[in-house]
Each structure stands twice: as structure tokens, then as C-alpha cells.
Design a protein around this nucleic acid. Structure first.
Lengths: 331, 331
DNA sequence: ATGAAAGCGCTAACAA
DNA sequence: TTGTTAGCGCTTTCAT
């Protein structure tokens, strides 16, 4: 029951080629004919079959957004950023979450090779060799959202983890702190790695003592923040402030600190990274780093659309999305 | 550079039909032939062109998930639920957010009529006449996630707002409260409407006085919780507990109550609805209702796939996703 | 300015 | 068990 150009052609007494031209806005159609065709199309409630159009054109106006096997408060913002931007250029966004039934590498293969999508955006916390291998086989343009700075062969948009962590640390130093601890994230997560490095470099550049004991490993969970905080509080020489590599771990610190009857920031300061929804409602509100997440999605989409549009291979570009220090009451 | 069945056919010295059959697992292909074809396909790194396949089959293995013009903490969970379920049946999920550049009604038209997707899931807070009108024109199967119970002509999955609000109210009554206030959500939001009704009916059924003053309008924002709470606290006859229709408004109550030096729950109780991430970290942790959001997505996808699979028109089904009372310290 | 016709990659009906 | 062929809806080249 869905109408096609064939029907329109019949009713308008023209060939399907003319209909196609009229509909696609080709200049070589008599204005009169075009009007007639447009009118009939409207009457029939005609919608072009995008499947057919993509197929015949040999390219697709779908882009894939491939997400890793984790859930994250910020995913919807990224998705929305991508979708909004893509839409403005006439593209649609397909979301592919990886999980136990579908690994990232598998997704790369089946999705990117199937002709279904014309390009892909991949959110990759850690660019493993396996993933790079898989990506090297692909022929459609793609953009990676990741914080792995060691890569030069891809278009990539990343959070300025290093810069923001550096700023945060400098902020603490300027406030007069000299005993600054850091709870880091997973060792195989590039965001975490960059944040740690920002902390280390800022300390070094400002002649602040980096005690090994004050740098403790976490894994981005609240529980790891808990135990890391305990370790720090049990130290002979306690730090004056804890800079957690994300807000959830900072939250874990809050718990431990408050359990022990200590006051934030009087007895010990705490800062985080991410500015998750609840951070501003904590008691005291958490000083942290806000990432402009929607920019991540928007920028990635822009880069991709750019690549998809250009005939020649667009150069691989690196874009860093800035992050902003949010000073609240926890330090 | 992408290989096709034609190439495989040439290399295997068979017709493309045989290749197609072998690849799609048809039983009427000699095992030997199949092995050969599979081997060549693998060598060529062959991936079927999904666009072509969908096109020739006249149906699509894409489903659209159409989201409203708001952001919500829970969207990623819904998206994931849909995507996971769809994937298991070989379907892909396209996400379409509505916004100023693309109204819901527009999305319905362009997306559902373009042959691109084989079915759609629509997240609709309020089923307006305009939307229903648009939906009635569509020919592809769809499922609605909404809480509008007045509709019988659609397949719909909804949160059991009414039941959960009823339970919450009964819980408060059982705790001995008799002066129970409710801050409701937007008047044009079916979730809000059902929650209010659950509160009202539970009070009535338990011979609890329903004071008009204790039922105040909010709009799901924290600010509206703020002002509603002020109104309630300024009443001559104050309520003993406030049941806010969502957690953000409950949070608004917290602020006002704490500003005035009152203690929760000693001086006044507060409960919410949603169990947003931060609720358990509030001080005191908020008693609320947890909705099994992922079930929303999963169930909607199941209903849709069911509809898409059946030749005959599957009956429209209504499914309610249960919600769970989460008792914490705020009441 | 318009029409005829080929063809995109694949499936399925029909033939052999 | 395999091959031949038509055709899905559309765009595009080549005629006219």
C-alpha cells in the first residue's frame, strides 16, 4: 500500500525518470511538470523508499554509533549529540551496544562491512591491538571517541583529561595544599591514565612532593573509592586533599570520611572528575570537572560527516573536547 | 572492493543462486558445495549487503526507537534494553530523538514510511490527538511506551505508576501516617496522572482524609518541588509526610526542609518516585519507587518483534512493567 | 525537458 | 541439487 514513483509516474503521465528528477530537485524539469508531480506525490502520501535509494546509490545515510560493554550515565547525551548532528545533515543514527553476545570486534565486522551504514562512530575506552586490527580492515569512514593519544592513524575525539586533571591539581596547589593524593582509575582505561598523568605533571611542575603512598589505584567504582580512601586515611602521613579520578570514587571517599567523623573540606578535601548528576547535591557539593559530553557526540558526528562527504580521503583529525573546573564546597 | 555473491559464484563455479542458498543455510545445497562456498566467502571476507537483502525482501531488520524531546537519566537503559533484545533476533536499533528541528509527528511520518525500518518503538509521554492521527496512517508495526491507559488500539508497555503509587501510599498509612501530602507532576503527563490517582485511591480505600491543600501541583522539576514544599510547610495544618511524584521534586523538598532546620523523617517524612541514581546517596537516603527500566525496553522490543514476526496481525497487547518500593531512611 | 533502459546485490519462483 | 531469470524502487546514463 506504500506508494512508489511508478504510481506517481502513471498518474502524472510521465516516466519514472522524470518523477525521480522532480523529486530530487533536478533543475531540468519543467516547473509545470514538477508542480504536478509534487502535488500527486503529496496526495499519495508518498515517501521515498530510503532502502532502495541507499541501495542504488551504493551508499547509506545511516551511521552506526558503537558503544562499549558498559553502561554510563553519559551515553544518552552522546547518543543525542550524535543523532542531532547527524539528523541535520540527513543522516540517521543506529546504536549498537556491545555485550556478551556481541563483542566490539564482532560489531565492527558485521556492522561496518554490511553496507547498511555509511560510517561509524566508535566509543572505545581502550584501543586494544585486536580492535585496531579489526578497524584496519574496514573501508567505511569512522571516527573514534577515545582518550588514547598514542594513535595517529585515526580520526579521534577525546576529552581533555590531561589538561583538566592538570588544572584541577594546580587549583589545589594554588589553594595552598601540598599534600595531594590521587585515586586513579583502571590501568587499561585511557581516560584514567591521562588524568593520572595530569596530576603527576602538575605536581612536578609546581615542585609539589609526589609521595608514592599518595597515589593509589582505583577502578572507577564507588567501592574502590572506599578502600582507597581507607588506605589514605590510615597512612602515617595523611594527605590534605584527595583528588579522585572520577566522581563515583570521590563519593566512596565521602562515605569513609564521614563514617570516621571527619569533615569535608575542613579535615580533608575531596575532588572528583565527571560532574555526574548527583555531585552537586552531595553534602558538601563536590568540586569536580565537568566534561561537555554533548560536544563529544556532536564533534564526532561532525568529523564523520565530513569524512563521509568528501570524495578524497579527509585527513585524520584529532579533536579535544574541553573540560571545565567546577568549584563547589568540597575543596 | 567489497565482495559480493557474484564473485563468490565465479570463484566457486556455481550460480549466484546457489551461493545465496548456501549462505542462507538452505538445506538443498550439497554439503560439499556449501563448504566450498563458505570457504571462499571467508577468504574474500564476504559480508552480505544488508541494504540489498532488506530491499529485495521488502522488509527491514532495522527498528526505530523514537524518543521524545526531553532528556532523561533512563533513556540509555531503555535504548540498551531495546538494542539487546533486538540484536538477539537479528535486528538493529535506530535511535531518533525528537527536538526542535524534528517533531515527533514528523519523525513518525518520515521514519515509519520510508521502508528503512521494519517496526518502531515510540516513547511518548502524552498521546496527543495529533500523534494518534499520525500513527493511524502508518503501516508498519509499532509499540508504544507510555502510561496512557485510556488507549486500547495500540500495543503498549507502561510503568505500573498507579499500582506503585498506591503501594507507596499504603506503606505510609501502615506506618501510621494519616496526614499525607502529594506533589503531583505535569497535568499532561500520564505517568504523573496515574501516580496521583494511585495516591488518591489508596487514601480513599483506607479512610484517610484527603485534604485539598495537601495535593499540590508540581511539574517534575526540583524547583517545583521547592515551591510546593514551601506551600505545604506554610499550611496551618501541615502534613506529616510528603509523597512527591518523582525524586527530583523530593529533592526539592529536602532543600526546603533542611533550610528550615527541620529533620527528615523526624519532623516530616519525604518519599519520591523513580529511584534516580542520587536518591540513595541523599541524606537521609530517599524512600522511593524503583522502576525496572530495562524491562521497559526489553518488553517493548519483544512485543514489537512478535508483531513483526507474525504474518497475521498480532493482537495489541498491554504490558505493565512492575515497580518496586525501595524503603530507605526518609520515611 | 523527457523517456527508455540498465543496473545496484540479493532472493525466490520456476525450470531443469 | 543447481541454474536461470525476474524483479524489488530507485538513480543515472544515454538517447531523443
Amino acid at each position: 500500500m506504500v506508494s512508489t514513483i511508478k504510481e506517481i509516474a502513471r498518474l502524472a503521465n510521465v516516466s519514472i525518470a522524470t518523477v525521480s528528477r522532480a523529486l530530487s530537485g533536478s533543475p531540468k524539469v519543467k516547473e509545470e511538470t514538477r508542480q504536478l508531480i509534487l502535488k500527486i506525490a503529496k496526495e499519495l502520501n508518498y515517501n521515498p523508499n530510503l532502502l532502495a535509494r541507499n541501495f542504488v546509490k551504493g551508499k547509506s545515510n545511516l551511521i552506526a554509533l558503537i558503544l562499549p560493554d558498559i553502561t554510563d550515565e553519559f551515553f544518552s547525551e552522546i547518543i543525542r549529540g550524535v543523532d542531532d548532528t547527524a539528523f541535520l545533515s540527513g543522516y540517521y543514527t543506529m546504536v549498537i551496544s556491545s555485550h556478551k553476545n556481541r563483542s566490539l570486534v564482532e560489531s565492527i565486522h558485521t556492522i561496518m562491512g554490511a553496507g547498511l551504514v555509511g560510517g561509524a562512530i566508535l566509543l572505545i575506552p581502550f584501543l586494544s591491538k585486536e580492535i585496531k586490527e579489526a578497524l584496519n580492515h574496514e573501508r567505511i569512514p569512522f571516527v573514534i571517541i577515545s582518550s588514547d593519544n598514542s594513535q595517529n592513524s585515526y580520526s579521534m575525539v577525546s576529552i581533555d583529561n590531561y589538561g583538566a586533571a592538570y588544572s584541577m591539581t594546580e587549583y589545589l596547589i594554588k589553594k595552598g595544599y601540598t599534600k595531594i593524593a590521587h585515586i586513579s582509575g583502571p590501568a587499561d582505561n585511557n581516560d584514567a591514565i591521562s588524568r593520572k598523568q595530569g596530576y603527576i605533571d602538575a605536581c612536578k611542575d609546581n615542585q609539589i612532593k609526589l609521595k608514592k603512598n599518595w597515589l593509589v589505584d582505583g577502578n572507577f567504582t564507588m567501592e574502590s573509592g572506599n578502600s582507597a580512601c581507607k588506605v589514605l586515611l590510615d597512612l602515617k602521613e595523611k594527605p590534605e586533599v584527595i583528588f579522585a579520578a572520577n566522581d563515583m570514587m570521590a563519593l566512596g571517599c565521602y562515605e569513609v570520611i564521614q563514617e570516621r567523623g571527619l569533615k569535608i573540606p575542613k579535615d580533608i578535601g575531596v575532588t572528583g572528575f565527571d560532574d555526574i548528576l548527583l555531585s552537586k547535591y552531595l553534602n558538601p557539593p563536590l568540586t569536580t570537572v565537568k566534561v561537555h559530553i554533548n560536544e563529544l557526540g556532536i564533534t564526532a558526528a561532525e568529523l564523520l560527516l565530513n569524512k563521509m562527504g568528501s570524495q578524497s580521503y579527509a585527513a585524520n583529525r584529532k579533536v579535544k573536547v574541553s573540560a571545565e573546573l567546577i568549584v563547589r564546597k568540597s575543596c
